[in-house]
């Protein structure tokens, strides 16, 4: 039993964090709590200050509207936070769509769909083009272009305020990830993930690989949502310092040889280590 918990440590903590954040929003909407009011686009914390989605505020800016100072400060707080802990920590620790896509990835592994060779191949860097496109389109259409089609937005608003047909969008992301493309949405298309990848390039919290302990079991490769970032694993001791790492810690959970762990980047020795 302890072993099961130990091997799912970070998964359990992440799911709890994701759930608690959504619950805090629901509690404010249903019972008037004031811990977190609003939703993931913008939230008032303890009735005192605001947080805001920096990507949404950026799109608003491109559409030709300068947001209020409350929102700009809120967006900067969020941006700074993720720049320090790793931008894509949002993806695996906060984003509710992550639960959907990780479930799809898990089911894919269980059903053996991962090993089929006839998968379509799409380059993962397409998300950066989607990011550029969402800013361009915000400018052309004069409203935040990603916000009107975002499955993340629809899912999180659905959970807090009621779904409408929003669940169908989450379902299509699930099925796309399950049968069409491994890590399809989060790993290839999501411009919010791309935005946070760039924001978290220089983050302080990273995963360190110790090659001396590694037994080449490949567990981490099988479970990592962004396996391309593990390029040095099994080869040399190094930091996994790609901005695309979501800091989900699933590789640490599944590593049986203590070859992976979270570290705070030592800014001085950083260069020697890579």
């Amino acid at each position: 039993m302890i072993n099961i918990i130990g091997r799912n440590r970070f998964l359990i903590i992440r799911r709890s964090v994701q759930l608690l954040i959504i619950l805090a929003f629901v509690a404010s909407s249903r019972w008037g709590w004031s811990v977190l009011k609003g939703n993931l686009s913008s939230a008032k914390v303890l009735d005192s200050f605001y947080l805001a989605d920096p990507f949404a505020v950026l799109q608003m800016f491109f559409s030709g509207f300068v947001a209020s100072s409350d929102l700009i400060i809120g967006a900067l707080i969020v941006l700074l936070f993720y720049a320090l802990v790793g931008g894509r920590a949002f993806c695996s620790w906060v984003c509710p769509l992550n639960v959907v896509t990780e479930t799809a990835a898990w089911l894919r592994r269980k059903l053996g769909l991962d090993t089929t060779t006839d998968n379509i191949r799409i380059k993962r860097n397409i998300r950066y083009y989607v990011l550029i496109l969402s800013l361009l389109l915000s400018f052309v259409l004069a409203y935040a272009a990603f916000e009107v089609v975002s499955p993340i937005g629809m899912l999180q608003r659905g959970l807090i305020f009621g779904f409408g047909m929003g669940w169908a969008v989450a379902l299509s992301v699930f099925l796309f990830d399950l049968v069409v493309l491994k890590n399809g949405w989060c790993g290839h298309f999501c411009p919010l993930g791309a935005f946070y990848s760039l924001a978290g390039k220089l983050a302080l919290v990273e995963i360190k690989h110790n090659v001396d302990n590694c037994t080449d079991c490949m567990n981490c490769f099988r479970v990592c949502p962004e396996p391309q970032i593990l390029k040095n694993v099994t080869k040399k001791t190094s930091l996994i310092d790609s901005g695309e790492c979501t800091n989900c810690g699933r590789c640490i959970d599944l590593c049986e040889d203590d070859a992976l762990k979270f570290v705070l980047k030592n800014l001085k020795n950083n260069k020697n280590e890579n």
């Binding site: 609003g38 939703n39 805001a52 030709g64 947001a67 409203y143 935040a144 916000e147």
Partner: peptide, 9 residues
Amino acid sequence: VKACIRCGS
């Protein structure tokens, strides 16, 4: 539509 951040406040 430009200005609303869709937070539901």
